[in-house]
Amino acid sequence: MSLVITDNLTKVYGSGPAAITALDGVSLHIQSGEFVAVMGPSGCGKSTLLHLIGGLDAPTRGGVTLDNKELTSLSDDDLTLIRRRQIGFIFQFFNLIPVLSAEENAALPLMLDGVKPAIARERARSWLNRLGMGARVHHRPNQLSGGEQQRVAIARALVIEPMLVLADEPTGNLDSRSGEEIVGLLRQAVDDWGKTVLMVTHDPRIASFADRIVFLKDGRIIDETRLSGIAGDEKMVRDRLTDI
């Protein structure tokens, strides 16, 4: 069953001669429980695709369906509620709130949703524990390493038990070891916790953790590859990229 369906998704920035087509008729199905990586050169529309699927931006043409709901027809408030309850975001620069502790950062979406602070913190703590951050719950972002900060960000994304996790270059700001640990956690989210993950990345090694890789160029899907889900497929990914 497809959790996410994009139908002829198009996004044009600007108008007239200055118009730039960031995404050009992208149609994509993502199954529930699937780990999909999006790859492509800079400016190919990877992040735009992620933003449109996440309801952060509205398409110029085409539509996005998430769990049978057409996002483009929803109001801003309804979209916000979907983001709050069904989508978890992970960013390249972690984007934690510097004045809140790890636990508070992870609990934030629940607190925004009106969950009692004590319960929200409890759930945040349990996710931080699962992600190996149990000893660092009271630390503030500036007291954590990059990898640790990204773990907090993952906890923040998973604490709401989302259907879909959208990760925008989640390892882009990390060293290779931390990067692998983070993508390993995303793999775990799919395999053990039943989430669906859509990840944008430049890194073939990171992409090779996914079930499927979608290659974008100039705003269009130019290729798709299914992987076995093991790191050994890295070479194959590299070759594919070179072909493209």
């Binding site: 916000t80 979907i82 983001r83 975001f89 709130i97 925004l112």
Partner: peptide
């Protein structure tokens, strides 16, 4: 503020 909104904070 962008992160908060992305995470589901209403306007």
């Amino acid at each position: 503020i962008g992160v908060l909104r992305a995470m589901g904070a209403l306007r």
